[in-house]
Amino acid sequence: MTAPLLADLRRARSSALLEVRDLSVRIGHHDVLSGVDLSVGAGRCLGLVGETGSGKTLTCRALIGLLPRIGAEVMRGSITFDGRDLVSFRQRDWNRLRGREIAFVPQSSLTGLDPVMTVGRQLAETIRLLDPESEVRTRAVELLDMVEMPNPQQTLTRYPHQLSGGMRQRAMIALAIVGRPKLLLADEPTTALDVTVQRAILELLSSLRQATHMSMIIVTHDLGVVETVTDDIAIMYAGSTIETGATNDVLSRPQHPYTRALLDARPSARAGGARLTTIPGQPPGPGEWADGCRYAPRCPFVQDRCHEHVPQLTAIPDGHPAACLRQEELVHD
């Protein structure tokens, strides 16, 4: 059991499809991302987890070259995708990459479809950019089939308002995978959906991954979602990744006090009557970052040195990378 698992790990490390190192992004005078490190292996699924304002969506925008639209720019760091450096990409390069190699399902995807166009026309519009005209219809049906849409033929003639939330999300995923991307970014793919539909969409993403060997990044604030579908996890806090590793490992042996607190704050972590663990205060907004560790003002394990040094994401023996000066002590207690 151990041998193939180790081999698997090594493979994942050596063949990262996407590698982000020390990424910093600035809007105006404020750093909004600083020290984002993550990697996605070929065919693997990464969960990008964090609370509102932690920089999850900005990280996604950086990965698909949509930072300039909101006046943000990369100040430092590298994004390597399939051997290419994305930070140096120009608009023309992005146009060639986006949709074909990296695809994006945005957060507001329930309202993302054009309300006055049928699903079929919206799909055809995108398919035409990549496939010959003669195959457009077959491909559209095939895509709806891939996303397990009930009655694909009929759905082509439907307008978005005639579809349920789950079906609209399926249509958005179909649109994203038109170009047979190597990496799919899904920003909060299940947030506005009912629990039963949420589960169905997660199962769809898993089966799509199995069928196409596509890598995925799923952005979410829901640890339950992460636990269900991802192989690896990256936890973000105040614009940086503070813990990364295999999902099982991070969730069962968190090494950063923030990850611990997040896990303890889940209602399922406590029996009825016992109080949930809460984190005092609020995460700092851009421009409010203190010197040293940005979690220090809220951390129960804080020491003087935490205010002096910005901890780097470092791996410890038989642990995974975490950005905490005290992770060695914390992992053993």
């Binding site: 609370e51 509102t52 009912d194 629990v195 604030h221 640890l223 607190a261 997040l262 704050a265 889940r266 209602p267 009557g273 109080r275 949930l276 663990t277 809460t278 984190i279």
Partner: peptide, 28 residues
Amino acid sequence: DASVQAQVLNLLLDLRESRGLALVLISH
């Protein structure tokens, strides 16, 4: 958010205990 949710849930529990408040909680 998750950590804030925990604070509000704790508060609701406190109020139930301190005030004997009956709670009808609608949630998915």
